[in-house]
Simulated scan of single mutants.
Amino acid sequence: MATQKKTAEADYSMQEKILALYELQKIDSKIDGINKVKGELPLEVQDLEDEMAGLKTRIENVNAEVEELNALTKQRKREIDQARIQIGNYKEQQNNVRNNREYDAITKEIEYQELEIELAEKRLKEYAAGIRGKKAQLEEAEAAAAERGSDLEAKRAELEGIEAETAPRVAEYTAQAEMAKERIDERLLAAYERIRRNVRNGLAVVTVRRDACGGCFNRIPPQRQVDIRQGKKIIVCEYCGRILVADPEVAEE
């Protein structure tokens, strides 16, 4: 690429570079026109893909929360079973106590285990309510994902159809643009790309018609128009910053 740019600087005059810029602009405008056919489809597809990714993450998180609640439910049920076994053992021990102190101590252990069962059962109710809530969220997210997935599939198919139809022309224009770029030095090309990014319609190079800038339509002074026609240096519009060139069609006339 560097060798190509050096060759361009050595072999082409400034006027030829300016004309190459104008040619490049016309080609890029054709590509812009093709891209306009897509409208908002690329953004819509991207938005739907992002939304689908978010819904997928949400579904995964809810499923993980449900699994955690199920695991806690199993743990609390085991604790209840163990507490009941302990209570059974303590009641058997009560039948063999030797004094009231031992009896009272075992009774306290039984009461403690009963409180543990009561607390665990309370937690089980909370987990059950939590699982119901999570499943409702899951159903909502899955329904939204199915709907968005259907929209995404339709939008993607529409976009792919347009891209397939326009691909040959885009490839042809892209090849033409690369040929035009070979006649433009790197610094000038960078300026052109920067201006294109900063203007709404992508027009970085415009002609002077009826004594006015073809981009912002502000009047261009006569002497400046003479300099533009001579094509000895790059001249930009002092109002909009676009590169100004003489209209080749008018020049031919």
Rank of each mutant, 00 (worst) to 15 (best):
M1F: 02
A2W: 10
T3D: 15
K6W: 06
T7A: 14
T7C: 08
T7F: 14
E9V: 08
E9C: 03
A10Q: 15
D11V: 13
D11K: 11
S13N: 06
M14F: 08
Q15V: 04
E16L: 08
A20S: 09
L21C: 00
Y22E: 10
Y22V: 04
E23V: 09
Q25L: 07
Q25N: 13
K26A: 12
D28V: 00
D28Y: 06
K30N: 02
I31Q: 12
V37L: 13
V37G: 03
K38Y: 05
G39C: 02
G39W: 00
L41K: 08
P42Y: 06
P42H: 10
L43W: 07
E44H: 01
D47H: 12
D47V: 03
L48Q: 09
L48P: 01
D50I: 12
E51F: 03
M52Y: 02
L55P: 03
L55I: 02
E60P: 01
E60K: 11
N63E: 09
N63M: 07
E65R: 13
V66F: 05
K74H: 09
Q75R: 09
R76L: 06
E79W: 04
E79K: 14
I80M: 10
D81T: 15
A83Q: 07
A83Y: 01
G88S: 09
Y90F: 12
Y90A: 09
Q94G: 07
R98C: 00
R101E: 13
E102Q: 15
D104C: 02
I106E: 05
I110K: 03
I110W: 04
E111F: 11
E111G: 09
Q113Y: 13
E116P: 01
E118T: 11
A120K: 05
L124K: 03
K125Q: 02
K125Y: 00
E126C: 01
A128G: 00
A129Y: 05
R132V: 10
A136L: 03
L138Y: 14
L138E: 10
A144L: 06
A145C: 06
G149C: 04
G149K: 05
S150C: 01
D151A: 11
E153R: 13
E153K: 12
A154C: 02
K155S: 10
K155M: 05
G161K: 15
V170R: 15
A171H: 08
A175H: 06
A177C: 06
M179Q: 12
M179H: 07
E182R: 15
R183H: 02
E186L: 11
E186C: 02
I195K: 05
R197W: 00
N198C: 07
N198M: 13
V199D: 05
R200S: 13
R200H: 14
R200V: 09
G202M: 06
G202V: 02
L203V: 14
A204T: 03
V205A: 08
V206Q: 01
V206F: 05
V206M: 04
T207A: 14
A212F: 04
A212D: 06
G214Y: 02
F217D: 10
R219S: 10
I220V: 11
R224A: 09
I228P: 01
Q230S: 12
K232C: 04
I235D: 12
I235C: 08
Y239R: 13
Y239P: 00
C240E: 01
C240M: 00
R242D: 00
R242H: 01
V245R: 15
V245D: 07
A246G: 06
P248N: 10
E249I: 04
E249V: 06
V250H: 07
A251L: 15
A251E: 15
E252Y: 08
